[in-house]
Simulated scan of single mutants.
Amino acid sequence: MTPVKRQYDATGRQEQARARRRAVVVAARELFERDGFRATTIAGIAAHAGVSAESVYKGFGTKAAVAKAVFDFVIAGDDEPVPVAQRPQQLAIQDEPDARRKIAMFVAGLAVRTQRSARVQILIRDARHVDDSLTPVWDKLTEEGRTGMLMLGRHLHGTGQLRADLEVEEVRDILWNYLAVDHYERLVLLCDWSLERYTEWLTRALADALVGGS
């Protein structure tokens, strides 16, 4: 009797690799936020995560790439392989018929994501002035932000409920301006606004800028 070969199941190894990657990202976030980008080393991240420095280099390549992975993790809130734009909250925004309500829903999610990601965004923004390796990372965050706001801008513009004088590109630019972490940094981190107050202000500001009226 010819033995039947069992099909190799890589699920366990893939999950282990994902868990190791998650551990590295979580460790890097803690060290970046505590010690800053320059003071944090790959060796330190590896030790904090309980893995080898070699595995960090193999999995990410550079410390700047680790920083981008940290941002992607905190902006999503997890490491599930599902883009933010395809998650239930974003799909609910698409289904909502009222533009003002869409904006309120978008801002509610944005505020939470910004709360999670603000410190690493600020770290990348500021540290790029002393470490050139972070410049492409910041440029990538900028590109992703503008692309996301163009998608949302087209969606909002398509409702026919925005101000008549606004073209899609201007809607994108207004959204992208308010998306900037600078507003959160000044109002929440420096002026001690609560997240609720910040969310209310941002919702009102965007609705007034895009829809107008009351």
Score class of each variant (00 low, 15 high):
Thr11Phe: 03
Gly12Thr: 09
Gln14Trp: 02
Gln14Ala: 11
Glu15Phe: 13
Glu15Ile: 07
Arg18Asn: 00
Arg20Tyr: 02
Arg20Gly: 04
Val25Trp: 04
Val25Phe: 09
Ala28Phe: 06
Arg29Met: 06
Glu30Cys: 02
Phe32Cys: 02
Gly36Asn: 01
Ile42Ser: 13
Ile45Pro: 07
His48Val: 12
Ala49Gly: 14
Ala49Gln: 13
Gly50Val: 15
Ser55Ala: 13
Tyr57Val: 02
Phe60Tyr: 10
Val66Asn: 10
Lys68Val: 03
Ala69Asp: 08
Val70Thr: 12
Phe73Met: 00
Phe73Ser: 00
Val74Glu: 05
Ile75Tyr: 07
Asp78Ala: 07
Val82Ile: 10
Val84Lys: 08
Ala85Asn: 14
Ala85Asp: 13
Gln86Thr: 03
Pro88Asn: 05
Pro88Cys: 06
Pro88His: 05
Gln90Met: 13
Leu91Met: 13
Leu91Gln: 11
Ala92Cys: 05
Asp95Val: 09
Ala99Val: 15
Arg100Asp: 00
Ala104Gln: 11
Ala108Thr: 14
Gly109Ala: 03
Ala111Trp: 01
Val112Ala: 12
Arg116Pro: 02
Ala118His: 13
Arg119Glu: 00
Val120His: 07
Gln121Asp: 00
Ala127Lys: 03
Arg128His: 11
His129Ile: 07
Val130Met: 08
Asp131Ala: 04
Asp131Ser: 00
Ser133Ile: 02
Leu134Thr: 02
Thr135Phe: 04
Asp139Val: 09
Thr142Gln: 14
Arg146Leu: 14
Met149Pro: 01
Met149Arg: 11
Arg154Ala: 11
Leu156Pro: 01
Gly158Val: 13
Gly160Tyr: 06
Arg163Trp: 11
Ala164Ser: 13
Asp165Cys: 06
Leu166Glu: 12
Leu166Val: 08
Val168Asn: 02
Asp173Ile: 03
Ile174His: 00
Trp176Met: 04
Tyr178Gly: 11
Tyr178His: 09
Leu179His: 10
Ala180Glu: 06
Leu187Asn: 09
Val188Phe: 04
Val188Ile: 00
Asp192Asn: 08
Glu196Thr: 13
Arg197Thr: 10
Thr199Leu: 05
Thr203Met: 06
Arg204Ile: 02
Ala205Asn: 04
Ala207Arg: 09
Ala207Asp: 15
Val211His: 12
Gly212Ala: 01
Gly213His: 04
Ser214Tyr: 09
Ser214Thr: 07
